[in-house]
């Protein structure tokens, strides 16, 4: 079952100006949503805030109520060895399979470092990583 390894990332359109991230964070705090990982991608006047959270649907609805444009995006999360060479291992598998990483960010989880990837072909990436003995996270494994 590859589908269980597809994780819902929440993507929020935000203008590139002071106070916008605070507004997003405040909203999530008030509705008791925990953020596992997040990153910001910037274009010139705006950006996209990407986050993995414990209650994506709640997060989406509270942000939309505040007027934000919000979408879910499919990503995968891979356990990395928290030591030199950890990232290399994962990146090599995808590189060899000709799968492009559109963007990635990472966080240090309780048991291992976690790499979050947006790739061109998610299904194929999952099977290649599994075939190479890599370990993927389900949504319930996050945190």
């Amino acid at each position: 079952m590859q589908g269980e390894y597809i994780i819902k990332q929440i993507s929020i359109f935000s203008e590139n100006k002071p106070g916008r991230l605070a507004a997003i964070a405040e909203a999530l705090e008030k509705s008791n949503v925990n953020i596992y990982a997040f990153s910001i991608a910037e274009a010139n006047s705006f950006g996209v805030v990407r986050a993995l959270v414990d209650k994506p649907d709640d997060a989406r609805s509270v942000l939309e109520k505040l007027g934000f444009a919000v979408q879910f995006t499919d990503v995968i999360a891979v356990r990395m060895k928290d030591q030199p060479g950890g990232l290399h291992e994962v990146a090599q598998i995808l590189g060899d399979a000709g799968i492009n990483i559109e963007y990635a960010y990472a966080y240090s989880g309780r048991e291992a470092a976690v790499l979050i990837l947006r790739v061109s072909q998610a299904g194929e990436a999952i099977s290649k990583i599994q075939a190479a003995g890599g370990s993927l996270l389900r949504e319930s494994d996050l945190g």
Partner: peptide
């Protein structure tokens, strides 16, 4: 103003729209 329904979640789409 962005139309909420038109947001794909991807930065590229936004840059393209702009």
């Amino acid at each position: 103003e962005m139309n909420r329904q038109a947001f794909s979640g991807e930065l590229d789409g936004l840059v393209g729209l702009q």
